[in-house]
Amino acid sequence: MTASRIPEDAPGASPTAAGASVQVTLPDWIDDVVDWERPYRTDEERMRLAIALSRENVARDTGGPFGAAIFEEASGRLVAVGVNSVVRLNNSTLHAEMVAFQFAQARRATFSLSAEGLPTHTLATSCDPCAMCLGATLWSGVRRVLCGATRDDAMLLQFDEGPVFASSWAYLKRKGLEVRRGFLREEAVEVFELYRQRGGAIYNG
C-alpha cells in the first residue's frame, strides 16, 4: 500500500516528487499467528484474534498493545488484520484499526466496506478506538464493532485517546452501527500490563 513520502536523502523535497511513497506493512510474523482460512463465527473468536494480535505485537517488540481484525459478519471470513505500527513505521496514523481498514479496503477495492454488493463487515478491536479511529470506523463502512479494553484502561497506561465522548458513541449508533464494548475486557487489559512491564513506548502521552 503506497502513498507519499519525502525521500530521506532529499531534505525539503516536495512530497509529490516522482517516486515518493509510503509503505504500510504488517510485521513479518502475522502469518505465523493468523489462520486466514478458518471462519471466525462467534464474537469471542473474533475478539480473541484481535487480542492475540495485540499480544504478539508487544511480545515481538513490533508496536503498541493494540490489535484489530475485520470479518464478514455472516460467514466469519477474515478479511484483514491490523496491529499498532506507529513506532515501527514512524507514522502517527497507523493505529491497529487504521491499518486494518486500509488493508480491508485495498482487498475489497473500495473506499467503503458497505459498498453495494458487499457483505456486512464487523470490526473487532482490542481496545475502544481513539478519536481518530472512531471517526474512521464511521467512514470505513463496517456495520458492527466489538471493543475489548476501554478508553479508561488505555488512559491509565498514559495513552492519550483524544476527544471521544458518550455522544460520539451515540452518534455511531444513530448512524446504524451496532457496538459492543468491554467485551473480553480482562483479557485485553492483560496485554496492557505486559506492555507496561516491558517498558513499552507511550508515543502520544
Rank of each mutant, 00 (worst) to 15 (best):
C127E: 03
E116W: 06
L78E: 04
L94G: 03
G12Y: 09
E190M: 11
N204A: 14
A201Y: 15
T122W: 01
F192Y: 11
G205R: 14
D28A: 08
C147Q: 07
R181L: 14
S167L: 05
E72C: 01
L123R: 04
G176D: 01
A17D: 09
D35R: 06
L89M: 09
A18D: 11
E37Q: 12
R41C: 01
S75R: 03
P27W: 01
A20Q: 09
A131K: 08
E178D: 13
F111N: 09
Q23I: 10
E193D: 15
V191L: 08
E72Q: 12
S114D: 08
G76Y: 04
Q102K: 15
S167I: 03
T16F: 15
A188N: 07
T120V: 10
G63F: 09
P65T: 13
L157P: 01
Q197A: 04
W29K: 01
R174C: 05
W29I: 00
G67R: 06
E72P: 01
V33N: 06
L184R: 13
C133H: 02
V79P: 00
A17E: 12
A136H: 09
D28C: 00
W169M: 14
R38P: 09
P39F: 07
A96L: 01
L89C: 02
L89D: 09
A109S: 12
W169Q: 14
D32I: 04
R198N: 02
T110K: 00
A188I: 10
R185G: 07
A74I: 00
S85I: 05
E190H: 13
P39E: 06
Q102R: 10
R48T: 13
Q102C: 12
A50W: 00
A69F: 08
D152I: 00
G63M: 13
D153E: 03
S21M: 06
E161C: 14
T137G: 06
G19R: 03
G135Y: 10
S4G: 00
Q105K: 15
L156C: 14
E190R: 11
T150V: 09
V79I: 15
F101E: 02
G76N: 03
W29Q: 04
V58E: 07
A18P: 12
D31G: 01
P11T: 02
F101A: 08
T150Q: 08
M155T: 14
Y40S: 06
R108Y: 15
L172H: 06
T62K: 01
E73K: 12
A59T: 06
E72S: 05
D153T: 00
G76W: 02
T42G: 09
C133T: 07
R77I: 10
R88P: 01
V142A: 01
S126Y: 01
L49R: 02
T150W: 06
N84R: 13
L49A: 01
A10P: 07
E193N: 14
L49S: 05
F66N: 15
A201C: 05
V33T: 13
Y203C: 15
R60C: 02
R143D: 02
A96F: 13
E116V: 08
L118S: 02
S14C: 11
V58N: 07
Q197I: 01
A170Y: 08
A136W: 05
R60F: 15
D160V: 07
L194G: 10
V86I: 13
S112E: 07
L78K: 05
E193W: 08
A154F: 10
E187F: 15
A109F: 05
R144L: 02
R108I: 15
R143K: 14
A18V: 09
